[in-house]
Design a protein around this nucleic acid. Sequence first.
DNA 1: GGTTTCATGTAACTAGTTACATGATTTA
DNA 2: TAAATCATGTAACTAGTTACATGAAACC
Lengths: 192, 192
Amino acid sequence: MALEHAILTALSEQPGSGYELARRFDKSLGYFWSATHQQIYRALAKMHADGWLTGATIEQDGRPDKKTYEVSAVGRGELRRWIAEATDMTPIRSDLAVKIRAARAADDPILLDDIARHRQQHVNRLDLYLSIEKHDFGDGQPLDDERLHQFLVLRGGIAAERASIGWLDEVVEALQRSRAHGRVAVAAGASA
Amino acid sequence: MALEHAILTALSEQPGSGYELARRFDKSLGYFWSATHQQIYRALAKMHADGWLTGATIEQDGRPDKKTYEVSAVGRGELRRWIAEATDMTPIRSDLAVKIRAARAADDPILLDDIARHRQQHVNRLDLYLSIEKHDFGDGQPLDDERLHQFLVLRGGIAAERASIGWLDEVVEALQRSRAHGRVAVAAGASA
DNA sequence: GGTTTCATGTAACTAGTTACATGATTTA
DNA sequence: TAAATCATGTAACTAGTTACATGAAACC
């Protein structure tokens, strides 16, 4: 149910068009709530119809009209209502965890390749977050509420990526050890 | 696309009925790929129709018939094919991250309550994982491939829960500091 | 006598993905 | 001259959620 609330959040920070929102969902907020442009256009139409947003059409020459949206009083109320609502942990769905669990041939180089690819993706994502942290929050300046919240969410992303990388290192090490020792390993990680 | 592959994995470890699978998805595999009984029954029917599973109906008195399934050669092939297929990082969708980012009133006690609830849920989940680790893998015995894989996936869950708890501690501390200092904070966490 | 367990499902709905479509403008 | 950007969508499909339904047996 949170796509609409993520859009309300984004448009509260800065009004804009569907296209602009889609760009923002490719970064920033989108790191913590991913959405494609198709989803966004559909949600905007519904939210506008429900009165959560006010819209204005801007004519442009040589280009399709641009529709910009901002959050209405009703939309602000809905966002407040949602924030006050208790939510539970999001259920996890990890392809890679299922794959690791499914693989009988522990030392299958194909699986190790895929694990290495995932690890690299997490390293890239961590580097990105760290560069944003340095660039946007690295000056030790006091933060107002809005920027503090952005900072804290980014810190969550950093923590998650570090945990993923550490875990995948443990996985690779264990699988390689198991391969080296005739496919039998001990639960050495349990004491780590 | 992985629900069907998660079911193939579960039925490879141990054949069973839809009901039994739904129980297993409430724990074990389900910690890393959640699914409800409705999804599972629907998927089983489709997988059976597609020849990925063989099924047998067991008549019982006083109870509905039980349908047990096991993985066919076709299903095993499909699971192998999927494991060999490269997959990307699962996109993240975190309600709580969106909420934190959306909250203007940083020290709003309602949001702090919800954060505390989430933290407690992660602590409970971590405790559960640690007790499984101790019970199932704590004896230092060598692990065969299947058990090693189960262990490694569990270690991923432990790492993720620890990261979540650490992050939420940082969030609470920062929000409380911001409240104490007239709603302005510094990016102190950046050096942590 | 009330809840939990066993055992299966259907139906309606909401959310997310993938593919297709159009067309001018700007950049390499 | 080819690709990327701007700017909007529709359509078909797949996946996930929520609500409803049935009924005996075992447990407290």
